[in-house]
Amino acid sequence: MTLLSVSSLSASLSGKPVLKDISFAVRAGEFVGLLGPNGAGKSTLLRSILGLTPSQGEVAVSNRPAAALSMAERARLVAYLPQEREIAWGMAVEDLVSLGRTPHRRAFAGLGRDDHAAIQGAMRRMEIEHLRHRAATELSGGEKARVLIARALAQDAPLLLADEPTAGLDPSYQIALMRIFAKLAEEGHAVIASLHDLGLAARWCSRLVLIDRGSTVADGPPPAVLSPERVRQVYGVEAYFGEAAGKMILQPFDVMAGKPAEQDGNG
Rank of each mutant, 00 (worst) to 15 (best):
A202N: 00
L161A: 07
K259C: 13
A162Q: 04
P221Y: 00
E243P: 00
H189Y: 12
K42Y: 09
A75L: 02
S194V: 15
K16G: 06
A145R: 12
T44D: 12
R105P: 01
P37V: 10
V225D: 13
W204M: 14
F253I: 03
S70I: 11
L3D: 05
T2N: 14
G267L: 14
W89C: 04
A152L: 04
M178S: 06
L160E: 03
L34G: 07
A136S: 12
P260N: 10
E73Y: 09
G246M: 08
A60N: 12
A40G: 07
V209G: 03
R27F: 11
V18T: 11
T166P: 05
G236K: 12
V78K: 04
V18R: 05
R113L: 13
D212F: 08
E129S: 13
P228N: 14
A185C: 08
Q251F: 08
A257E: 15
P260M: 11
F108V: 08
P223L: 06
V78L: 11
E143N: 06
L4G: 11
G141T: 00
A88W: 02
R134V: 00
A193R: 00
I22R: 02
M256R: 11
A185L: 09
R124E: 14
P221R: 04
D21K: 09
E229T: 15
G188A: 10
V6K: 08
E238G: 13
M123K: 07
F253H: 15
Q155H: 00
R203P: 03
L96S: 02
D156T: 01
L45Q: 02
V225F: 12
L198V: 01
G29Y: 14
S70M: 08
A75S: 06
D21A: 12
L177H: 00
A25Q: 14
L3T: 07
G141N: 05
M256E: 10
L35M: 13
P171G: 02
S227M: 14
I249E: 06
P37E: 06
S227W: 04
E262I: 15
T102N: 03
A40M: 12
E138G: 02
I49T: 08
N38H: 10
A40N: 08
G112F: 10
R203T: 09
I249T: 15
H104G: 00
A239F: 01
K42R: 10
A190N: 08
A201H: 09
M91C: 07
L210C: 04
V18H: 08
H189G: 07
